[in-house]
Simulated scan of single mutants.
Amino acid sequence: MKKLLVIGVGNTLMIDEGFGVHAIYEFWKERDDWDETLVDFVDGGTFTQDIFYLFEEFENILVLDIVRANQEPGTIFSLEEDQLRKEEKQMLSLHDVDLLDSLGMAQMRGHRPYLRVIGIEPKEINWGTELTPELKKALPDYLEITRKHIREILATSDQTT
């Protein structure tokens, strides 16, 4: 079983809605920097519940997605699984709702990985393939925060094995 699945979700035809997938494209450029026996980077697209079977192969899931929380566009959020379930005011994307359902299905099949979401407040969701300037500007910080989470998850996992 691998330690970590990093999955970018979103629709790249809907401007900022595709941010998570754009972030995964950047991580694909860094593949040589990561131990492929520990971590996979996957383009989850619009993420449907039918990919829950992937979760059976990982101890941890790190989702890269938009989060609508009525903050300034480009605001970055690091959310633990329990925050996704408790914060009623947190406006999750539809992908995150599907994700929680998929985790439940994985649990019914016998293995439930731990979930974290690195989210970003979008500016615009409409037809178009380019991110807004606000999210383009925030992408380097977002990637660095995500790298820190990846390193933390891999280090924590190493200590428990």
Results as ranks from 00 to 15, higher is better:
2 K>T: 05
2 K>C: 02
3 K>P: 00
3 K>H: 07
3 K>I: 02
5 L>P: 01
8 G>I: 04
9 V>K: 07
10 G>S: 01
11 N>K: 00
11 N>R: 00
12 T>D: 00
15 I>D: 00
18 G>W: 00
21 V>E: 00
23 A>I: 05
23 A>E: 04
25 Y>M: 11
25 Y>T: 14
27 F>H: 04
28 W>I: 10
28 W>E: 13
28 W>C: 09
28 W>N: 12
29 K>G: 06
32 D>N: 13
32 D>Q: 13
32 D>I: 06
33 D>F: 12
33 D>P: 01
33 D>C: 12
34 W>M: 04
36 E>F: 04
38 L>S: 08
41 F>Y: 06
41 F>H: 06
42 V>C: 09
43 D>F: 10
43 D>R: 10
43 D>K: 09
45 G>I: 01
45 G>W: 02
46 T>G: 08
46 T>C: 08
48 T>H: 08
50 D>K: 10
50 D>N: 13
51 I>T: 04
52 F>C: 08
53 Y>L: 14
56 E>R: 13
56 E>I: 10
58 F>C: 01
58 F>I: 03
61 I>D: 04
61 I>C: 02
62 L>E: 08
62 L>Y: 05
62 L>S: 10
63 V>T: 15
63 V>I: 15
66 I>R: 13
66 I>P: 06
69 A>M: 10
70 N>Y: 15
71 Q>S: 12
71 Q>I: 08
72 E>Q: 14
73 P>N: 13
73 P>T: 14
74 G>W: 11
75 T>Q: 05
76 I>H: 02
80 E>F: 12
80 E>I: 08
83 Q>K: 10
83 Q>A: 07
85 R>C: 07
88 E>W: 09
89 K>H: 11
91 M>T: 11
91 M>W: 13
92 L>C: 07
92 L>V: 08
93 S>F: 10
94 L>M: 13
94 L>F: 14
97 V>T: 03
98 D>F: 09
100 L>D: 05
101 D>Q: 02
101 D>A: 08
101 D>G: 02
103 L>Y: 05
103 L>N: 11
104 G>H: 11
104 G>F: 02
105 M>D: 10
107 Q>S: 15
110 G>N: 12
110 G>Q: 11
111 H>L: 10
113 P>T: 12
113 P>Q: 11
113 P>C: 07
115 L>D: 07
116 R>S: 12
116 R>N: 07
116 R>Q: 15
118 I>G: 03
123 K>Y: 14
124 E>W: 09
125 I>Q: 09
126 N>K: 14
128 G>K: 03
129 T>N: 08
129 T>Y: 03
130 E>H: 05
131 L>W: 01
131 L>G: 02
133 P>S: 09
135 L>N: 03
135 L>M: 04
135 L>Q: 06
136 K>Y: 06
137 K>I: 08
137 K>W: 03
138 A>G: 11
138 A>T: 10
138 A>E: 04
139 L>K: 10
139 L>D: 00
141 D>G: 09
141 D>K: 14
141 D>C: 05
142 Y>H: 05
143 L>S: 07
144 E>R: 08
144 E>V: 06
144 E>H: 03
148 K>R: 05
148 K>Y: 03
149 H>N: 11
149 H>W: 10
150 I>E: 00
151 R>G: 01
152 E>Q: 15
153 I>P: 00
154 L>P: 01
155 A>Q: 13
156 T>D: 10
156 T>P: 00
158 D>S: 15
158 D>W: 09
159 Q>D: 12
161 T>R: 15
161 T>Q: 14
